[in-house]
Design a protein around this nucleic acid. Structure first.
Lengths: 142, 142
DNA sequence: TACAAACGTTAGGATCGCAAACGATGATGG
DNA sequence: CCATCATCGTTTGCGATCCTAACGTTTGTA
């Protein structure tokens, strides 16, 4: 039993392997920011989607509600995000990013811009890659 | 403090969010295969890179040596991979995929082919996406 | 006014990465 | 030859994250 001719590696496998490579870089690159990858994901969602209640934030980021609690506690203690009572629903919290949080995102973007992880791609190819990623994410309710 | 005009979301963040969406699909899609995502990653590496000693396998897949031990135990118990003594180095094990392992990979590819995770992309766009992924992976020693 | 659902929170178990250590084997230099 | 160090697979412990289930509170609905 051999693999059939023209066997195509499932794309998911390739992305996963690429993410494992990137994971090492991530901690190395963003380590100096003092917060981890999930916290940055949350900040990105808050910066782009405005104030969100935690349930929506969990849907957007695909981070579990339970994990999100500890994450927001950490972000609040660093004054990077804020929980405020939602006037429309006393059960919910309106979570928003702070100015310090936005400043940290800008620093993170600068760090990634200096990184050469995508050096193998030309600027044009990278733009294509980003566009395709965005389409995929949008198609899945990102 | 607001985000600067034309602020570009770091690509790493976008990939991470996309992977979180895909992670849920993975378990759902490959659940019936009876093994998890890391085990499939190992099988892919073994199928494409031939017999590998565990140290090389760990480098290729970016799965920790320690985690790999338990993973190979599981794969061996299901007769999907084999550990054989390496004649050239009595410390090392030559790990290879079995016919059953290859058959499972073919099934996995069929499952992903039926999935519509990339339905938002045309066949041409998906080919471009795969090619760019492959370039990135190759550039990082995949 | 009951009853079900959603909200944030907490706790428990499972998985995985990372770091350190171990015995066995291999490679290197005096 | 041999002493030293590196590498191999393995085990163990710790920390981070995910998933599930439960809870009290608040909202929506029959």
């Amino acid at each position: 039993m051999a693999l059939p001719d023209g066997f195509q590696l499932p794309t998911g496998f390739v992305i996963d392997r690429l993410m494992r490579v990137a994971a090492g870089r991530w901690t190395e690159l963003y380590g100096e920011l003092g917060i981890g990858k999930p916290a940055l994901i949350v900040l990105v969602a808050l910066a782009t989607e405005g104030p969100l209640r935690q349930a929506r934030l969990s849907e957007q980021t695909r981070i579990d509600r339970a994990t999100l609690v500890a994450l927001l506690n950490e972000l609040e203690s660093h004054d990077l995000a804020r929980r405020a009572p939602d006037p429309a629903d006393r059960r919910a919290h309106a979570v928003s990013i702070t100015d310090a949080g936005r400043a940290l995102l800008v620093r993170a973007a600068e760090l990634e811009a200096r990184d050469d992880f995508f050096a193998a791609l030309t600027a044009r190819e990278r733009a294509t890659f980003d566009a395709l990623l965005g389409r995929l994410l949008a198609a899945h309710g990102g």
